[in-house]
Design a protein around this nucleic acid. Structure first.
Lengths: 186, 186
DNA sequence: AACAACTGTTGACGACACCAATTATTGCGC
DNA sequence: GCGCAATAATTGGTGTCGTCAACAGTTGTT
């Protein structure tokens, strides 16, 4: 699975982007006379949005999510299910409240996710002995097997995303991302 | 308008995350006996998902988008409107088709976005003289004024997001993000 | 016993990515 | 010139997702 996660753009005419020499190619939309070209690239507010790390992060996050989902689609899961599974794998049994806090998902979202995972036999809810409100969610053997089987393919997703980066650069990027994520959710 | 783009979390009880010492705090969900702790942190598939740059990117992108939207919310716009505006500011008149390609949004999404911008008087559609199918979208004076007025606040969004990073690190991160984004959309 | 706080749960709403279909128009081949 | 594939903008529908409000069962406190 997940060999060619490339056909994201069925019609390959989406990538007419040149790295350098941006912000200038009227070429086609250049003849609606009325307004004289008031483009002053000097004006700071006229910079491209892609020059903004925040927006870049936003777009890249989207692409990353899509990539993860295409990788997971044959298993019937989606990224958020996978996140729950991975979380369960490390904390070994967690209240839904904890999952919600750790993953940054709304408590109501956890319900559906755990429902699905239970239906697939990847996790199950158990009563918490000391608090009858809570349910403890644990990974089943099936869930463990799934994680084991898909681990390698999962790594390939990030590999694919970071293709243009050398290993050392990926490390740098990762450290920076961790720093950025650090103060808020994780 | 739009001075303090900070009151992002009305109820400040969402960020109980500590930067260091993650992945270990059973503390509460630690007593559902049945399963013996089969946690082998050695097992590679048991690493936390947050150790994955791809997932980190996904979460950070989400946070970035939220931050942008709270910054824009008083103006009635959302991030995607803002992206269109900024795109128009640099290319000065673009077919909707071009906006779609540049921003990576579906053509059908552009329609609604430009509709909204037109309603707010920030942009307008003009007929393309050589192709009556196309409409050329141009920034109005109002749109230019809006960009001028909100520019500083816009920068503050990225500043806020990258708080934990020193200026040099932000530069590094930005360069890496550009590289990653480079091969696909922008 | 009464009351506030909390857990899981359901429901609704809006934003958004995605895809299919439609209309008006263009360009091309015959 | 006439049909016909391709294209720009548009509409509509579907599914995921983030967010909030409300609710029931349960806990802890007073």
């Amino acid at each position: 699975m997940l060999d060619s996660a490339h056909e994201t753009h069925p019609s390959g005419e989406r990538r007419d982007r040149r790295p350098g020499a941006e912000t200038r190619e009227p070429a086609i939309a250049r003849r609606h006379t009325d307004t004289p070209p008031p483009i002053d690239a000097d004006e700071p507010w006229m910079r491209a949005l892609h020059a903004d790390s925040g927006y870049l992060l936003y777009r890249l996050g989207l692409r990353s999510g899509q990539l993860f989902n295409t990788f997971l689609q044959e298993s019937g899961l989606r990224l958020r299910h996978y996140a729950v599974l991975r979380c369960l794998a490390t904390c070994e049994g967690a209240l839904q409240r904890e999952l919600s806090a750790r993953l940054g998902y709304d408590p109501s979202a956890i319900v559906g996710l755990v429902d699905d995972l239970e239906k697939l036999g990847f996790a199950e809810r158990r009563p918490a002995p000391d608090d009858r409100r809570s349910r403890i969610v644990v990974l089943t053997e099936g869930g463990r097997a799934f994680l084991r089987d898909t681990d390698q393919a999962g790594r390939r997703v990030t590999d694919e995303l970071l293709t243009p980066l050398a290993p050392a650069e990926r490390e740098t990027l990762h450290k920076l991302l961790v720093r950025v994520a650090g103060n808020g959710l994780a």
